[in-house]
Design a protein around this nucleic acid. Structure first.
Lengths: 328, 328
DNA sequence: GTGAAAGCGCTAACAA
DNA sequence: TTGTTAGCGCTTTCAC
């Protein structure tokens, strides 16, 4: 690292300069009430004058608390997490915490590494659709307070979207449009919610007499949409239900390039209602994720503002133009 | 915070259990070579057995270094930062650093607060288009190593996009299409690059005999696009150059809702080439930002892998369908 | 090669 | 109200 700044002023410097003991200086700065007003004002003045900033590392060492929270996302480039992050930030700030973000880049190993390295510096973790396996998660949870989004584990507070109801809405919507066959474009194997989505979709489809097949897994990124679209098209179904919007938008792009009419020839459904879903071409029918609310609730549960629980949040279907009557 | 985990094992526990001094245990764990192979193996074994994890807070206290880097973005919901973050992550990992992200939410105060609270925990800052004013930036830079993106300050390493060349390309493109009047839809006053973009655009426009006026400032978000579109339309020009793609896409949405043909009646240009610019309607003509490369370079400069410098990166114009011949 | 001990900067008993 | 002192968990001289 370049340019080393001059040695920063410490509490000792403040105390010496102010002619008081370090403990008095400490109290004046962070435990007002147990020090006379005059002394306090003087210490504060000296501190400001010499540009004192507490070393938060040292400050946190005795208690182990930093008033920082870590929020780990599986992929920072997925707009789905925007609202969740914002919600979490709002509640964290309200509770006097600073939120730092970590990006797992869809890698379980990176995710675990992040958690390991951040563990000492934060008071808890908000894990968004964590990709790490159960044993890694259990280990992390044994060392630190943890709350989960779109994943559950016994004894760990969590918020998950209602995959069953989402599947029901999708299936009813497609059924009403005359579809009798659909394909699920699966997400990563490491995704807990992917398994739930497929299971729910299969159940609900069976219940309405709709044939459902599963394709993939595909990476939940725009670029994977091409292969997913081709596979979906080859399967001969009239409706594709993608793991998430990122994949769905990628599918839409591919279909447009291949000259396949959407929804004329094939319908496409996504999940999350991310940035872009409303203005892609055609606008995407998708299941909205209550992400902002989830973010707020998660932080509330982590900081103890809300009771720990296993919450299931509803997600309304947003019907746009990527779904239409079944062909033929 | 809920469920307090059991007291974690310390180095003392390891040392006691292994029958060695803490200093020996410390060396075995983190300074191999200065300890016998047998002792080392034994200590490692004990550490693993009792589940020892070093307390990074305590580890960092003596040296003050944490091998963590902070990257602060003005708005985590702006897809522009995706590539930048990814580039930074790659280089940070390569140099053995962990990257944490902070979101300024377009607020100078929040940004400064983040920097203050994170300062003790990181070895340096990558500041993306920081919104804080010069004095706050100077103060931060006096305490910590800092590198800047799309902002400059004497003596601080930085990477900026070539706003002049970008403006030249935009103006030439519009000029070639027959446009003789354009309006700039300005970004936030706190944005350094906004001032540069307008100045460059005005210069280049004047050079080609194009009348340019400035509207705004507008928040660089989708939602601000409506007001920006209306203002642009009312100004009577045939081409709108938006501060960034977020605003430009918002403008496109509004124009579509108002039934204004793009580019038939009016052309729209953005900046950054974000996620969504390629698939919005119509696909957006924009100036691409070399974000990933910038992210890598910034971290390299911060970690000393690359020489500190003030780099200016070119940004190619990506002409899509939102620009066309001037009407009339 | 290993151990004892002195901090890193701060907080929090405990005394005075 | 203020000062003295003992840690927080680790690294790092300095002896042995």
């Amino acid at each position: 690292m370049d340019h080393e700044p001059a040695r920063p002023a410490t509490l000792h410097d403040v105390a010496r300069e102010a002619g008081v003991a370090v403990s008095t200086a400490s109290r004046a700065l962070s435990n007002p009430g147990r020090v006379s007003a005059g002394t306090r004002a003087h210490v504060l003045d000296v501190a400001r004058r010499i540009g004192y900033r507490p070393n938060r590392l040292a400050q946190a060492l005795p208690s182990g608390r930093t008033r920082m929270l870590a929020l780990l996302v599986p992929d920072i480039t997925n707009p789905h997490h925007f609202a969740l992050i914002r919600g979490a930030e709002i509640q964290a700030a309200a509770a006097g915490y600073t939120l730092v973000l970590g990006d797992g880049q869809e890698s379980p190993a990176l995710e675990v590494g992040h958690a390991d390295r951040l563990g000492s510096f934060v008071d808890g973790f908000v894990l968004i659709s964590p990709r790490m396996d159960d044993s890694a998660l259990r280990e992390l949870r044994a060392r630190h307070p943890v709350v989960l989004f779109n994943r559950t584990m016994a004894g760990v507070p969590s918020v998950v979207v209602d995959a069953v109801d989402a599947a029901r809405q999708i299936v009813e919507h497609l059924h009403a449009l005359g579809h009798r066959r659909l394909a699920y474009l699966g997400g990563p194997r490491t995704s807990w919610i992917d398994a739930r989505r497929w299971q729910a979709l299969e159940d609900q489809a069976a219940r309405r007499g709709i044939a459902a097949l599963r394709l993939g897994p595909f990476e939940p990124v725009l670029e994977a949409g091409a292969a997913a679209a081709d596979a979906g098209l080859a399967s001969g179904v009239g409706a594709l239900v993608a793991f998430n919007d990122l994949l769905a938008i990628g599918v839409l792009q591919r279909l447009e390039r291949r000259g396949v009419a959407v929804p004329g020839r094939i319908s496409v459904v996504g999940a999350d209602d991310i940035f872009g879903a409303a203005f892609c071409h055609p606008p995407l029918t998708t299941v909205a994720s209550p992400a902002e609310r989830a973010g707020r609730l998660l932080v509330d549960m982590l900081t103890g503002v809300a009771d720990a629980a296993e919450l299931v949040l509803p997600c309304p279907l947003v019907a746009r133009e990527s779904t239409g009557p079944a062909p033929g």
